[in-house]
Design a protein around this nucleic acid. Sequence first.
DNA 1: TCCAAAGTGAGAATCAGTATCAGTATTGTT
DNA 2: AACAATACTGATACTGATTCTCACTTTGGA
Lengths: 145, 145
Amino acid sequence: MSDAEVDNEVATLLRNAEQRYTTGRRRVVTALRHGTGPLTMAQILAHDASLSQSSVYRNLTILEEVGAVTRIVTGDDFSRYELAEHLTEHHHHLICTSCGDVVDFSLDDQVESTLDSSLHVAASALGFVASSHRLDLLGTCQNCR
Amino acid sequence: MSDAEVDNEVATLLRNAEQRYTTGRRRVVTALRHGTGPLTMAQILAHDASLSQSSVYRNLTILEEVGAVTRIVTGDDFSRYELAEHLTEHHHHLICTSCGDVVDFSLDDQVESTLDSSLHVAASALGFVASSHRLDLLGTCQNCR
DNA sequence: TCCAAAGTGAGAATCAGTATCAGTATTGTT
DNA sequence: AACAATACTGATACTGATTCTCACTTTGGA
């Protein structure tokens, strides 16, 4: 999805929720489009020094509520934020257990669809209605080796 | 693994780290053996009123360090704790996005091993050394429907 | 242009989790 | 069995990421 398409889609999501697509929110979305994985608050602020922390937190919450952003919690002390999957592509996360960094990766479609159907079977056996899955690979990144 | 075997294994892990297997630590392990998924601090304390919060936090940290316990962060406001996989079985988590409750489930072995090899391929393509994976299914539990 | 409603940002407040430390329990030694 | 020496406990204080507050600013419609 191109920058303009993402922008349009985010604008629509916000408008449907009677929210504005302000400059600050655009800047957050721009920051999230950069980097190779979900970003921490510190990374977002580092990417754009004009942003103020409290507004970014508030805007991330709103962007998450309207479905434009997803919050990731990996286990270290910081939440991470990325654009929602329908604005990017289905992907998973490689999490470095040493430095905490998170990088996106994908599985090939066949593995993904096998997995997906197995998950639905398992879920319904337990009375769950599955809506999505989340797959993280834990290990050590190149830098930390 | 039987209660006694788990107990022995935890005892060994602690001893190897020059830690004692005290009554308080036994009680925490007992609490974690109950329930259908990882437990929050509140659930552990509710299960055994004789435990004090600060000691449980400290002991969970130690049990995690020696490899007897795993900390799970699902995205709501509380960490959850479970016995390490080698003391139970490889499993995944159904996470109710409405109430936050977490329940264990398993995939059949074939799906699991296909997944595992795909993950290793993907990881090494990015210079990662994979050590384990984590798969969560998000949805709505029976109670919240 | 003006107004009402929405957004901003600096700082205060919250609260899960961690650190402190005096008191208690346990282990090894004589 | 008594004595250290060392580990553990638990009440409490502290920390820090995130959320809340509120006076001020910006925005969009009439």
